[in-house]
Design a protein around this nucleic acid. Structure first.
Length: 499
RNA sequence: GGCGGCAUAGCCAAGUGGCUAAGGCAACGGUUUGCAAAACCGUCAUCCCCGGUUCGAAUCCGGGUGCCGCCUCCA
């Protein structure tokens, strides 16, 4: 079965072939660290996470690089030009810190949120500010090849030297020029030429360069870092759909180095999400950070499942009602996990037929699961197979050996989904104030038993034996008030911190 | 103005020419349970509208209507 992805470059679904068979090199546009990353940011970061997990599930090796943009893009960038105020500078002024402190603080926050959402860590998170030298090298190369020129206080890329400009976004160059959005700039050879370096000795973050002290243009960092860690041509590049133009268009142009080579063979873009049916944006102020949702009582696994369960090319409409439905469906998987563990024990040889039936069903379901994900990460179809398996496994598994097979299959899929185990684990340590607000996370069975609960259960059991159900129900209600939910099963009474 | 996406049950959502239109949430009836919980069985859509192509269309083509995105900082 071939894996295929929808390639923005070409606007069609294409079979995926790694340049080096079995080894995938992937670059992801990461966060700009001048504030807490919001739900939309993580929607786009979960795309590379799913890609990484699924490619590895398919037996491929993945080298993943996600950049950290810690040099301020400008608040008022105009057609890839360098104007306006630096975002980090603005934030630094607001918080009365220097921009480096701001960047490190929000970079740390990004990693905390990333862990809450159980995103697989990339192999490197290179920072833009630590690759200024590499950026300067590329600009020099472009200048020496006549693909860039110095004019006034800026170095520009000359887009007339790159015929493929506009290929990724589908924007005809003439149309872009005809648009009124480009301000006339007599310094430029072509209105679409974009900034590679800006001389500005007053800028708050500045570096030496052959063109004077200043700062880099806002596309060059990705060219520099992808080339350094992945080489001139690599396999996958991801980002939000807003990156298509101008960011990735410019990146392709400047990375080409004078020939027609396009730095990444596949470009995958995450469609923007909506919140309550409206565009989520900072200017509208209707955005949620991960922290906001945690504070409202949702856990990382639920948020993750919501973002993951929506296909990356569809417009996911985030609502709290929807997240509630996600919570319930995740509960079903979690219950399955628990119920398969609580089956009556049996010897392996006695349960041979049951085990074989489950293995057969699991094998078939996994083939369907893979077929679905192979098709441009069709997660909805993949999840349908997971739930179909859950339903059938409930019918087939009667004893512990069968339950073990069912759990193993769910666990296997969870390597891709990353939600079941994650929702059973207590929150990771070291998260500061976030730790306190991570419900509903289950207690691992058999651990963290609070003093008294076992006694109450014993008491309730005695009451039930004596058919004193009034007393038994009273104890159940009492525990429920404390957030402990009880289930009577043929294997005895079980309790959970959350259902 | 240029480029692009979407419209499937109460809600979310897969399916792009042909088996009974996946799956999840919610709801309802039943089995089970001391009662619950969980589980199980069952019920719940002909696919925005009009026209066309075809033996056959949710799926292709044309025309409507509605919603949304990019082209400007934004994932």
């Amino acid at each position: 079965m071939a894996i295929s992805f929808y390639n923005t470059l070409g606007k069609t679904k294409e079979p995926f072939q790694a340049l080096v068979p079995g080894q995938v090199r992937m670059y992801n546009c990461g966060p700009t660290v001048y504030s807490y990353a919001h739900l939309g940011n993580f929607a786009s970061f979960i795309l590379p996470d799913l890609l990484r997990r699924y490619l590895e599930y398919s037996g491929l090796q993945v080298l993943q690089i996600m950049n950290i943009t810690d040099v301020g893009h400008l608040t008022d960038d105009d057609q890839a030009d360098a104007r306006g105020e630096d975002k980090l500078e603005k934030k630094a002024r607001e918080e009365k810190k220097n921009p480096w402190e701001i960047a490190r603080f929000y970079e740390d926050a990004f990693h905390e949120d990333r862990r809450i959402l159980n995103l697989t860590p990339a192999h490197h998170y290179p920072r833009a500010t630590e690759h200024i030298v590499e950026m300067i090298e590329i600009i020099q190369e472009l200048l020496s090849k006549g693909l860039a020129y110095e004019a006034g206080d800026q170095v520009y890329f000359e887009i007339d030297r790159f015929p493929k400009y506009g290929l990724l976004s589908g924007n005809p160059v003439e149309e872009l020029i005809a648009g009124k959005r480009i301000e006339e700039d007599p310094q430029k050879h072509n209105p679409l030429d974009f900034c590679l370096w800006k001389k500005d000795p007053w800028h708050i973050m500045q570096w030496d360069s052959p063109w004077g002290r200043g700062f880099p243009g806002w596309h060059i960092e990705c060219s520099a870092m992808s080339r350094k860690y992945l080489g001139r041509v690599f396999d996958l590049h991801t980002g939000g759909e807003d990156n298509i133009f101008p960011h990735h268009e410019c990146e392709i142009a400047q990375s080409s180095g004078g020939d027609d080579t396009i730095c990444s063979r596949y470009w995958l873009h995450r469609r923007h999400i909506l919140v309550d049916g409206k565009k989520m944006s900072k200017s509208l102020g209707n955005f949620y950070t991960i922290r906001d949702l945690i504070a409202k009582g949702f856990c990382g696994a639920e948020i993750r499942f919501g973002l993951l369960g929506a296909h990356y090319r569809s417009q996911y409409n985030f609502t709290f009602a929807g997240l509630g439905a996600i919570r319930e469906s995740l509960r079903r998987l979690r219950e399955f996990w628990r119920n398969m563990d609580g089956l009556p024990s049996s010897r392996e040889d006695e349960a041979k037929a049951e085990v074989q039936a489950l293995e057969a069903r699991a094998g078939a379901a996994d083939r369907e699961f893979r077929a679905a994900l192979d098709d441009d990460l069709n997660i909805s179809a993949g999840l349908a197979e997971v739930f179909n398996f859950v339903r059938d496994a409930y019918k087939l598994a009667k004893t512990s050996p069968g339950g073990r097979v069912a759990r193993e299959q769910l666990l296997s899929w969870d390597r891709v989904l990353g939600v079941v185990e994650h929702s059973l684990k207590p929150p990771p340590a070291g998260l500061g104030p976030l730790e306190a607000s991570g419900p509903p996370l289950a207690l691992a069975e058999g651990t963290l038993l609070e003093a008294g609960i076992e006694e109450w259960l014993k008491k309730r059991d005695q009451a039930r034996q004596a058919k004193n159900f009034k007393e038994a129900d009273r104890i159940r209600d009492l525990l429920k008030e404390k957030g402990i939910v009880i289930k009577d099963t043929p294997q005895g009474t079980k309790w959970f911190r959350n259902p």
